Simulated assay, not measured.
Amino acid sequence: MNRKSLRGSLLLLLGSVIWGAAFVAQRVGMDHMGPYTFTGIRMLLAWLVMIPVTLWMDRRNKKEPGYQAPDFKEQRISGVACGLLLFIATSLQQMGLVSTTAGKAGFITALYVVLVPVAAWLMFRKNPGKIIWLGVAIAVVALWLLCMPAGGSLALQGGDLLVLGCAVAFTFQILCVDHFAPRVSSVKLARDEFLVTGALSMLIALMTETITGEGIREALVPILYTGILSGAAGYTLQVLGQRDTDPTVASLLMCLEAVFAVLTGALLLGEKMTVRETVGCIMMFTAVILAQLSPVISSIRRNGRSHR
Rank of each mutant, 00 (worst) to 15 (best):
G241Q: 02
V288G: 02
M202C: 15
H179F: 15
L203S: 14
N61W: 02
G135R: 02
G159Y: 08
V49A: 05
P52V: 02
P35E: 00
V239F: 14
I174R: 00
G103H: 10
L162W: 00
L13E: 14
E277F: 03
R125W: 15
N2C: 08
S299A: 15
S298L: 06
A155T: 07
A81Q: 09
D192P: 06
V221C: 09
T39A: 14
R7C: 04
G66W: 05
I41V: 14
G215F: 12
G165N: 02
Q26E: 11
Q68V: 12
R305G: 05
Q75R: 11
L12D: 05
M207A: 15
L175D: 01
L85W: 06
L122W: 13
D160N: 08
K73S: 10
T226Y: 03
E214R: 15
S186M: 14
G280Y: 06
L111A: 01
G231I: 01
P182L: 07
S306F: 06
K126N: 15
L195N: 13
P70M: 12
Q94W: 00
K63D: 10
V17E: 07
I131D: 07
L44S: 09
Q94G: 02
G280Q: 09
L134E: 15
I138N: 06
P65M: 01
K62T: 12
K62I: 03
I223L: 15
R301S: 12
S91G: 08
T286D: 13
Q94F: 13
G165E: 07
A232F: 01
M43V: 11
R7I: 14
N2G: 14
M273F: 04
T171K: 08
G8M: 01
T236A: 11
T109M: 04
V259I: 07
F107I: 05
T197G: 14
Y67T: 04
L268H: 03
A150V: 15
M43E: 11
T208H: 02
P128Y: 00
A205N: 12
S299D: 10
G159E: 07
M43D: 11
G198M: 02
G8D: 02
